[in-house]
Amino acid sequence: MPSGVHIHNVRGQLFEAAERVLLRDGPDALTSRAVTEEANCAKGVLHRHFADFDAFLAELVLDRVRGIEDRTASLCAAAGTGSVVDNLTDAVKDLFGPVTVATVALITFRDGLRARLREAGLTGIPLAAHGTAMIAAYLTAERESGRLAGDADIDTLAPTLVGAGHLLFADRTSAPPQTAAVRKMVAAVISGALRPQS
Rank of each mutant, 00 (worst) to 15 (best):
G192E: 14
G67E: 11
E144M: 00
Q13I: 12
A137N: 03
E119T: 12
L62D: 10
L127M: 11
I154R: 10
A79G: 04
E69C: 09
L148I: 06
Q178R: 15
D153V: 10
L22F: 08
A78S: 13
K43V: 10
E69H: 09
A51L: 14
Q197G: 14
G4A: 12
V21R: 00
S83Y: 09
K184S: 07
E38W: 09
T36C: 11
A102Y: 03
T81P: 00
C76M: 07
V101W: 04
T156I: 06
S191L: 06
K184E: 12
G131Q: 04
A102I: 12
E69F: 10
D90E: 13
A34T: 00
V61D: 03
P2L: 14
I125P: 04
A170P: 00
R143E: 00
Q13M: 09
A133P: 07
N40E: 15
A34F: 03
V104I: 12
V101F: 02
P98K: 04
A29Q: 13
N9D: 09
A91F: 03
L106F: 12
L194E: 03
D171L: 06
A181W: 07
L157Q: 05
T72C: 03
D25G: 00
S3N: 13
A42N: 15
I107K: 09
L57V: 10
V99R: 02
V61C: 01
F96Q: 02
P126T: 08
A129Y: 04
E144P: 01
G80F: 06
A77N: 13
S145C: 12
R118N: 08
A164Q: 15
T31L: 07
F56Q: 11
A137Y: 03
G82T: 04
A141S: 09
L57T: 01
P196V: 07
E19S: 13
G80C: 12
D111H: 11
I7L: 14
A51Y: 11
E59G: 15
L30N: 01
Q178D: 10
L127K: 02
A187C: 07
A120H: 06
D86W: 02
M185V: 14
A77Q: 14
Q197M: 10
V65P: 00
S174R: 05
F50G: 08
T72N: 13
H130M: 02
A181G: 02
A187K: 14
G82L: 05
I154K: 14
G67A: 02
R66W: 09
T89M: 00
D52G: 12
A79K: 10
R64W: 07
L23G: 05
A128M: 12
P27K: 05
G97T: 08
D171P: 01
G165W: 01
G97C: 14
S74V: 12
D28N: 10
A105E: 15
N9I: 11
L88E: 00
G131P: 05
F96W: 02
D111A: 15
T132I: 10
D151P: 00
G192L: 14
T81M: 10
R172H: 01
R24S: 15
A91N: 02
V189H: 04
G80V: 08
G12Y: 13
F169V: 00
R11F: 04
E142G: 02
R114Y: 06
L113K: 06
A188K: 13
G146N: 00
G121P: 08
I190Y: 08
D52P: 07
Y138F: 15
A79F: 08
D151L: 13
H166S: 05
R71S: 15
